[in-house]
Simulated assay, not measured.
Amino acid sequence: MPQIACAQWRALDQLHPAPSPRELDWLNEQGSLTRRLTELSGERFAVEPLAEGWQILRDDECAALGVAAGSEGWVREVYLYGAGVPWVFARSVAARSALEAHPFALDRLGTTSLGHLLFRDPAFSRQPIEACRYPAELLPAAVRSAGLWGRRSLFRRGALGVLVAEVFLPELWQADA
């Protein structure tokens, strides 16, 4: 079975061509993206789960989590809505081996934002943000578009790593114009 495309993640200062200042500001958001989207939407923020369950993780995800290629993990894909419109596609993953050793309720989030939990738990530390032009074929068909900026960061709590990727959809840039 052929390996699906992987995003080419880079440190923010290694992106070429560089994002615009506005794009870089969003890509480099150090606080909770949930909080920022909630403020921009006038408190009309919502999470729509698209898919979640055990899957074989992508090679770049395995590498970031420090597990063997082909490892299984919990995958959660959602839209983050602002004012009734999807502004962000998010994909969060954690290796099965780490979740079994260090339980974290990724499977029970429902419409709760993962960021809401990560930023409230001081035991999680955030690794540096990486960004890329996210491969269109990795996006849901409804929002598939080439050249969209995405970012990801790894949140660690001991041996547990939760990798969170967020892709900024065109509607966000319209709302933040």
Rank of each mutant, 00 (worst) to 15 (best):
M1Q: 08
I4C: 03
I4V: 15
C6T: 13
C6D: 15
Q8D: 14
R10H: 14
A11K: 10
D13Q: 12
D13M: 01
Q14G: 06
H16K: 11
H16D: 13
A18P: 07
S20C: 07
S20P: 03
S20V: 08
S20G: 14
R22G: 13
R22W: 11
R22H: 14
R22Q: 15
L24I: 01
L27I: 03
L27E: 08
N28E: 13
E29F: 02
Q30W: 03
G31S: 07
G31L: 06
L33R: 12
T34S: 12
T34M: 00
L37N: 06
E39I: 14
S41V: 09
E43N: 13
F45M: 06
F45A: 00
V47S: 01
E48G: 04
P49Q: 06
L50R: 13
W54Q: 14
L57R: 07
L57C: 04
R58H: 12
D59V: 05
D60W: 07
A63I: 05
A63Y: 09
L65R: 06
G66F: 06
G66S: 10
A68Q: 15
A69D: 09
S71A: 15
V75F: 12
R76C: 02
R76L: 00
R76A: 00
E77S: 08
V78Y: 08
Y79I: 01
Y81N: 13
A83L: 02
A83W: 05
A83G: 06
G84E: 03
V85W: 07
V85E: 14
F89N: 02
R91D: 10
R91N: 01
R91F: 08
A94V: 07
A95V: 04
S97G: 02
A98N: 08
L99W: 05
E100Y: 03
E100D: 15
A101Y: 05
H102E: 15
P103V: 00
P103I: 00
P103S: 04
P103G: 05
F104R: 11
L106N: 03
T111L: 00
L114V: 13
H116I: 06
H116V: 03
L118K: 01
L118C: 00
L118E: 01
F119A: 05
F119P: 05
R120M: 11
P122H: 07
F124T: 12
S125T: 15
Q127T: 00
P128H: 10
E130A: 02
A131C: 01
C132H: 04
L138K: 14
L139K: 10
P140C: 10
V143M: 09
V143P: 08
V143T: 11
R144A: 14
L148G: 09
W149D: 10
G150D: 01
R152D: 12
S153N: 11
L154R: 08
R156G: 00
R157H: 09
G158Q: 13
G161Y: 04
L163G: 06
F168N: 03
L169D: 04
P170N: 01
E171C: 02
E171A: 15
A177M: 05
